[in-house]
Design a protein around this nucleic acid. Structure first.
Lengths: 219, 219
DNA sequence: GGGATTTATTGCGAGATGGTACAAAATAAG
DNA sequence: CTTATTTTGTACCATCTCGCAATAAATCCC
């Protein structure tokens, strides 16, 4: 679980740091943040201790503290990282010029990748986890997740609006309702994924949802 | 937060306990369990301490332990209590002979009552909270929530099946898909409620969902 | 090489946490 | 009244928790 300490320069494309002054860091903040995120996604805020985080990142507690602040700040930064990481994937799918059904399918498929993760077990959606935890009493955190909800609704609304404009869907559909239901489908996938329901079944849910949302006519 | 200690006999209808032997209890287990549930619903498993539970129930820790076992067992019992309590409400709505749209509306409305609770703040769905927490790694707990999901899907499927049989919905609808989407709607309500979205907006979601699920023809 | 600067490491401390031992208290049975 | 039984209340333990101070190490600038 410790960071592979590859000192010799990060990426070629990176901003080529202008040489720091003192003792060099033994960790790369971005890597550490990713490892912290993985831990938070598994156990949630309260059940993740600083010792756990320290072990997972390979940083000792004071370094953690110096780099990210206290546990709450680290959680917030990890959440922002989560959004940035997976927001990028989403944007890509939205950029592509796809029929609505295909776009939705790809979107949900990408979401399942995130929710089911690699080997260690399903993790679900970090936003949902945050809402469901005690962290939700924190106004700043609540504001962040509310923004996440709105973004998602807006993204889906955009999907359906362009589909109507392209004539894929009848003008009579209620875009706001479709968007809300598409969001609901995503939450449902997140929850069921984390509960351990296998991918095959989740994909069946996606299929059914897309049919219902777009009408069952075309493939 | 302490129990009102009303010793003189519980309810008239109760099984009239055959006189216990030793020192009488200073608490009523069912009341205490309800208070523990309220606390778990607010903060989740990890963030709820035995001291918190002790304070909320008015029982000291050894009594808590003696009555319900350790924290995990108490959580499980609280979850079962949650299901029993609100399962009853659901059954009632299902027993009534209602048109599908009205049935769904009443169902979601009852759910919102549970998710938004009385004064102190929205609590969401305890099943969703459990899935989103670290408690989900516990096989017994995971099995319980999976059972909850199945029960819900089955209940909704029954709703739509009878609606088709009564001619309220066309025979062409896919009952399984409708049930899954109805469940998804419920999860969405639970999450959004806990995130602090006001009831008006949640009711608008219900309205839209019912329209989409049942077709927008009748009211 | 000699500071200055930044980071790493050790380790502490005050308090919380889950769980339990043990004696005191309150009741029913004999 | 005495004893058996059950629960309460106090106190305790070992461990974990978060955060920080103090010191050691590694690098850059001069």
């Amino acid at each position: 679980m410790v960071q592979n300490k590859k000192r010799p320069a990060a990426k070629a494309g990176a901003p080529a740091e202008p040489k720091r002054r003192g003792r060099p860091r033994a960790y790369e903040p971005e890597v550490a943040l990713g490892q912290a995120l993985a831990l938070f996604r598994r156990d949630g805020f309260a059940a993740t201790s600083l010792d756990d985080l320290s072990a997972a990142t390979g940083m000792n507690r004071p370094s953690l503290y110096g780099a990210f602040g206290d546990k709450r700040e680290l959680y917030i930064k990890a959440y922002q990282r989560y959004r940035e990481d997976y927001g990028a994937t989403v944007v890509e799918i939205f950029k592509a010029d796809l029929p609505i059904r295909e776009r939705l399918r790809q979107f949900y498929d990408a979401a399942l990748d995130i929710y089911l993760l690699g080997g260690e077990g399903p993790r679900g959606c970090f936003t949902v986890m945050t809402v469901a935890s005690d962290a939700i009493v924190d106004p700043e955190i609540r504001a962040m997740v509310l923004e996440g909800f709105q973004d998602l609704d807006k993204a889906f609304a955009w999907c359906f609006r362009t589909a109507v404009e392209k004539g894929e869907l009848p003008k009579s559909v209620d875009i706001a309702v479709l968007a809300q239901m598409a969001s609901a489908t995503l939450y449902s996938l997140a929850i069921r994924a984390r509960a351990g329901i296998p991918r095959k079944q989740l994909e069946a849910i996606v299929k059914g949802a897309v049919e219902l949302l777009c009408g069952s006519k075309a493939g």
